[in-house]
Design a protein around this nucleic acid. Structure first.
Lengths: 333, 333
DNA sequence: CTACTTGCGCGAAACGTTTTGTTTCATTAC
DNA sequence: GTAATGAAACAAAACGTTTCGCGCAAGTAG
């Protein structure tokens, strides 16, 4: 098959140790350096990273598990994380959990068995149990975007509660009183965002009505269904906070099919969907996260753990959000 | 660190060969099976896939390189490919080429050095030169969505020329005469789609005007710019074929900012953007590819090569497209 | 001139699996 | 009672690297 170090050794008459030294940037005699380089070129030799990984017990690869690779948020995240890892000489092994907890657990074992040096997880689960094999193997794990209810892990995210609070507060300052929310009660971000919604309502002295809190997994289907229910309800709200990007999509679809329009009848604010800026009319108000910064930090934190430069208790990094203005909110006079 | 086969061996008093046999589904005495299973559980033993890969020279992993992981098309593709690979017991190592040819070449070497069993490429480049290391290593490669101008490789894609032809033909059948196209002249799909545009115009006896053929890399920026040029031109077209999903986004942005509207002033048809269905008004006419089927085939083809079940010349699989109806085309009376 | 350093190179032992060819032992057949 | 058969277990040699400890030569200090 392909050439090995042994071939280079034979062709140069040097020893394996010397070749290895050269490959790893050590000092070799100029004449030998030339010899080796010539042999490598002629043989098209390339390091076998598998063999190297075996002895070093390091693969220079980190695993990244996302809850759902199809969603825009994941794509963006993977892009930034990949860029940052590459900058630092690491490769990336991506797994898609397909929003399935079993698959998530399987993927984790997959990565651990392949001896990745560390793992970045955008989890499906709200509980951290599935990470046990990584712990046992002492493979560092850092969470991104979401954390768990039961366990503390290194984590980089935004404060979802505060972000949702601010969004609802904005609606209130536009004189909205009948404000609903469509968000997930089975995903960490959704749960936190609902809390923020409730806080804002409470603080403004507004009644928290259960019929205005629509729960269901973050997805366009749920967004569609729940928005429909809200529109058809006798107490149709004047504004809705959409729990994430997908529910926003679904919600707007329902709205487009209805007799109502945005922002005249319903005001909307959502999360994370920068892609639509300028494409959709009316343009959307949105809560945006500093994704690139977050990804840089997540990688930095993970590699510190990998390289044993950090040995304290779990670190939680919280980023601030901004609200991107749009046309989807009406001021009630 | 973590337990190895040797630990299992010591704890059971059996030999390494027997443990290996058990792990690989061979027959062992019932009493030994129990012994082994107990030891594995107690030790939390997990196979080290790196070591296994070294001796088998098989990693049960395929590499997937996409031109740009941020784009929706890639996300969808990766989802389906991952699903299919998992079904067949393979893992997936994803690389993002970030639309950069140099990075693409680097990523390829990365995958080859990690001894992936095969590689699926959605290429940036229009030339196949960067695949040389894979050839030398005899790592099978299958292209998806795009192929090269200079070399033949296994490839699964649609016939872009025909797809574009049909789209333009549809516009013509709606009595449009002044039809423009915005597409890439540096990417395979764009080049083919422009050819299809020209064929359709020619066949209908319509003049092919260079001012109506707007070229530039497939991106929302280019879509935006070129659409603006078209709108401001004295010979404003009545319809435009958008070269891909990103140009469609950019084009619609430009349109939204202008005094013109779709479909009253300008009719539009684009490619691949299922995600927007129902969200954008007017809804878009689009050429859609059977992505799931294509991904299944791409994996099937690659694994046949990997498992040496196929030894012929490069295979080119071409899929048909359908046109999804929308509201973005006006019939001219 | 001797003794000590320094820079390179070398051989051999790892790393954790699979695999090959051989050995062991119980069973069956005559 | 012996030979033939077959299943299961074993020991050892791979796989392609890195690394450890040592040896050799040339340079430096006294």
């Amino acid at each position: 098959m392909s050439a090995t170090m042994r071939d280079v050794k034979d062709r140069t008459g040097l020893s394996l140790a010397t070749i290895s030294k050269y490959l790893n940037g050590g000092n070799v005699l100029p004449e030998n350096r030339i010899l080796i380089e010539k042999a490598i070129k002629e043989l098209n030799y390339e390091v076998n990273e598998i063999a190297r990984g075996l002895v070093k017990n390091k693969t220079k690869t980190v695993g990244v598990m996302v809850h759902d690779i199809e969603c825009y948020f994941s794509g963006k995240l993977l892009h930034y994380i990949g860029k940052e890892l590459r900058k630092r000489g690491y490769g990336m092994m991506i797994c898609d959990s397909c929003n399935d907890e079993e698959l998530e657990a399987e993927n984790l074992r997959f990565l651990v068995n392949r001896k990745v040096d560390g793992i970045i997880v955008l989890p499906v689960s709200m509980k951290g149990g599935f990470l046990k094999p990584a712990k046992q193997d002492k493979t560092p794990v850092v969470l991104v975007d979401r954390s768990f209810q039961d366990e503390e892990f290194d984590c980089v995210a935004i404060d979802n509660k505060v972000a949702a609070f601010r969004a609802v507060d904005l609606l209130i300052r536009h004189n909205h009183r009948d404000i609903a929310v469509i968000a997930s009660d089975v995903e960490y971000t959704g749960v936190e965002r609902i809390k923020g919604y409730e806080d804002a309502m409470r603080q403004a002295g507004l009644e928290i009505r259960q019929e205005y809190i629509k729960k269901g997994r973050h997805s366009s289907e749920v967004g569609y269904e729940k928005m429909k229910e809200l529109l058809e309800s006798p107490n149709r709200p004047t504004a809705v906070l959409m729990g994430n990007y997908d529910t926003m999509l679904g919600g707007v679809m329902a709205l487009n099919e209805s007799e109502f329009s945005c922002p005249e009848d319903i005001s909307l604010i959502g999360f994370d969907s920068l892609m639509f800026t300028g494409v959709v009319r009316p343009s959307w108000y949105m809560v945006v996260q500093p994704m690139e910064k977050m990804c840089e930090k997540v990688v930095e934190l993970l590699l510190k753990r990998v390289e044993k430069k950090l040995d304290e208790a779990p670190v939680k990094m919280c980023f601030g959000t901004t609200i991107q203005e749009g046309e989807s909110i009406r001021r009630i006079e």
